[in-house]
Simulated scan of single mutants.
Amino acid sequence: MTTYDPASILEGLTAGQVIPYLGPAVLGLDGSTAVPSAPDTLVELITAKVTVPHKIRKNLTAAGQYIENFKHRKTLVGLLNEAFAAPPEPTALHRFLATLPLPLIVDVWYDASMAAALAGRSDFGQVQGVSRSEHFNQWVHYFHADGSAAEETEAAGWKTLLYKPLGSIAPASNFILSDSDYVEVLTEIDIQTPIPERVKEIRTGRNFLFLGCRFRNQLERTYARQIMKRSSDLHWAVLTEEPTRNELRFLAEQNIRRIDVPLGEFAQQLLGGELALQAA
């Protein structure tokens, strides 16, 4: 188990030095959730409504591509809209992060919980990855706090930028999910073209804290690696389950220190430390 100091991580968060990188498992921190909180759950939902070949029924990106090819892109988007239709329910961790002066929050799932937690503020905005099959020659779209469209130049004035690289149901149903969606991004991500300029500016010299994420497949590792590029040389990831060989190699390569405690326990340590700071 990696030795870590929750107080120093909390200090980094409150100073805006540590960037939270949220994965789907964060959704289950306060109990059950009305929207899918894992790729496996999401692919089960969409393949229960549209028949796909058995060999790809558990592969989210391949199943998405099959539906896109044989049932049209609109069918895939409709299924995703259904899957994430329930009103967002921010967890205590989402609400806690929304109180901090964080210049950047990365959220790699399709729900709108983090944006809902930030909704009481007018000084944040979103940038979301978009499918180039729907938005020709575009990589991202920007949105104000109220969900209205924004210009890229406005992002520099936001105190907090919520970066949703895979898109989000809100405010405009943007989803990067199918094989072809990822092919478009992966052909350019090594030279950083799909990464927003403002994200590149903010990440420089900062640390990342991975919460509710895994790095089991190449897509998960590639996105994390490219979003982290040119940041600090030290990061943390809360990973209770035993990492795979590829995950261990990735953690070592990126100097990500594994925090081997349950995510809920770690979140409570952060929230408890914040309460102690407020009482001091």
Rank of each mutant, 00 (worst) to 15 (best):
I259Q: 00
S232H: 14
M228P: 02
L239G: 02
P39V: 11
D111T: 12
L80I: 01
I56Y: 12
L177K: 05
V238K: 12
D111M: 03
A155L: 11
L263V: 04
I256V: 04
D260G: 02
A280T: 13
T2F: 10
S131T: 04
V18H: 14
Q226N: 08
A149R: 11
T160Q: 10
T187R: 15
L100D: 07
K164F: 00
L166G: 04
N59D: 15
T3P: 04
A86E: 13
M228I: 06
G78L: 10
R95H: 11
L248C: 06
L271Y: 02
A237K: 07
E11H: 11
R206T: 00
A112D: 13
V35M: 05
S231Y: 08
G16H: 05
D146L: 03
T33P: 03
N246T: 05
W236V: 03
L263T: 04
T240R: 10
G16Q: 05
W139T: 05
Q192R: 10
G125L: 09
P36H: 07
L80A: 13
S133E: 13
A7V: 10
L29S: 07
N59R: 14
P165S: 05
L80S: 11
A276W: 03
T187C: 11
G157P: 03
T47W: 09
S173R: 09
D107T: 09
L248Q: 14
E197K: 09
A25V: 00
S148E: 14
D5Q: 10
Y223N: 07
Q268E: 14
A83R: 14
L239K: 12
I227V: 08
T61G: 07
A48Q: 08
L100S: 06
F96W: 06
T204I: 11
P87V: 04
R73V: 01
G78P: 02
A115W: 04
N174M: 01
N207R: 04
G64M: 06
S232Q: 14
Q128G: 00
V140L: 14
D30T: 12
A62L: 05
L263I: 07
L79Y: 06
L270R: 12
L161V: 14
A98F: 10
K58T: 08
Q138V: 05
A38N: 02
Q17S: 07
V127M: 09
G12N: 13
